[in-house]
Computed example of a mutant assay.
Amino acid sequence: MLYFTPSSSSLGFSFASKQTIEDVINFSSEIGFGIVVLGKKVKIPINPINYYLKMIKYWKKADIVLATYPYICRPTKDNFLRIWESNLIEKLNGNKFSILYIADLPIEQSISSRKVVDHKAYEIEERIFKSFYSLLVFNENMKKEIQNNYGIDDERFVEFEILDYGVDFVPLPIKQIKRSYKIIYAGALAKNRCSWIKDLPHSDNFVYEFFGKNGEWINGLNRKDIGYKGFLPPDKLSKYASTDCHFGIIVYDPAFIEYLKYVSTSKFSAYMVAGLPILYSSKYSYLSHLVNEYKVGLPISSFDEIPKIIDNLTEQEYNKIRNNCLKLGEKIRQGYFFKKAVSTDLGSERRDNMKFYLGEKV
């Protein structure tokens, strides 16, 4: 069994993507997969030769293949190379038991970002998806979107529900509550994407702290209750957030509301492993589903509701939500959702279905 992945140090990956790449390497290794890292510190497609020679050499040897999309056959490559790579993967997979872990839908994300999508992108994605026997997807919404686009049968899908997030830090089970509260936001902080920060309400009972790249402009807001703290790597951020903060806030551009029904986010997972209850828009349908299922946060319909929600929250109520976050966060930290989906895929019934699908004798 081999897991194929580009190196997280390859150019062009976001911090969230790098985290996911490293996590899947670790989690797949823990359940018995050998790891084949492609293109170490190489900017693909400028120098793709070693990348593809290594892919061909080891893919041919594997009895079971696992890869993550969109990190395999990356959308940042030009169409010519993606077409070539998707054809290569189709041929290499052949009659192998092959699993594609789908961490994102880049076409739908581009549409949400109001970008023009080349029709070739659909053709390439269809070839990739159909060349793998099993597709691991977040939820029913993602499955249906893929089926609407490409007509893939139900039995080819396994749902994994939540993006796992591996950090070494383990939060303390008990946390002393101090008034005032700290609300944290961690992520990309470019001004054109985070202008909403200036609209956050004032309160004597809480402050906001922001972590990430390109957030220096936040200090220019000249608000004592809002501070930019720079960038921290995941382990250090989890430790700080778990020890010193009380809530994680999740905010996205309204254009992404449609896209967010397909995925949970690395931000959600990062807050869970730190034991932070989340504040989030009730318009985020899949996050709302997860929060309702696991009881790990509080919905808001507007920023103006934040002071009232926090002021009315008792320490007992807060600790109950935090304990739910700790339980879910422990699963996320251990790779529970990824491992469960892959283990389900490797079960005898799924393997027999695959043989039937490929026309082999069972």
Rank of each mutant, 00 (worst) to 15 (best):
I310G: 09
E126D: 15
G220M: 08
R333L: 11
M354I: 04
I21S: 02
G12K: 09
N95M: 06
P48C: 13
K91V: 00
W84Y: 14
K120W: 01
E140P: 05
R179D: 13
S343Q: 13
S8W: 06
S17M: 05
N139W: 02
D199Y: 07
S238G: 08
S8I: 12
Y69M: 10
K261W: 11
P48T: 08
D153H: 00
N139E: 07
M354A: 12
I56A: 01
S288A: 10
F157Y: 15
A188E: 04
I111A: 13
F4K: 07
S9F: 09
I197N: 12
L290Q: 00
G12D: 03
V116T: 15
T76D: 06
W59H: 05
I21T: 05
I31C: 05
M1D: 05
F138K: 03
Y122I: 06
N319E: 14
Y336R: 02
N214P: 06
K18Q: 12
L163P: 04
S14D: 02
S242G: 11
T5P: 07
L92A: 01
C194M: 09
Q147T: 02
E155A: 12
H202W: 03
Q334D: 14
Y208C: 08
K283Y: 10
W84I: 03
I300L: 15
D23H: 06
I72L: 13
V362I: 15
N79Q: 09
S285W: 04
L2C: 09
C325S: 04
Y294M: 00
Y284W: 10
Y286K: 04
I49G: 11
E126F: 01
A103C: 10
A16F: 02
V296Q: 02
F356I: 10
Q109N: 15
K57P: 01
P171N: 13
N353H: 10
K130I: 00
V117S: 08
Y122S: 03
F27M: 06
D199R: 10
V37P: 03
R114M: 05
L298M: 15
Y259T: 03
I21M: 06
T314I: 05
N79K: 12
R351N: 01
L66S: 00
R114D: 13
P75L: 11
S7C: 13
V251S: 07
M142C: 07
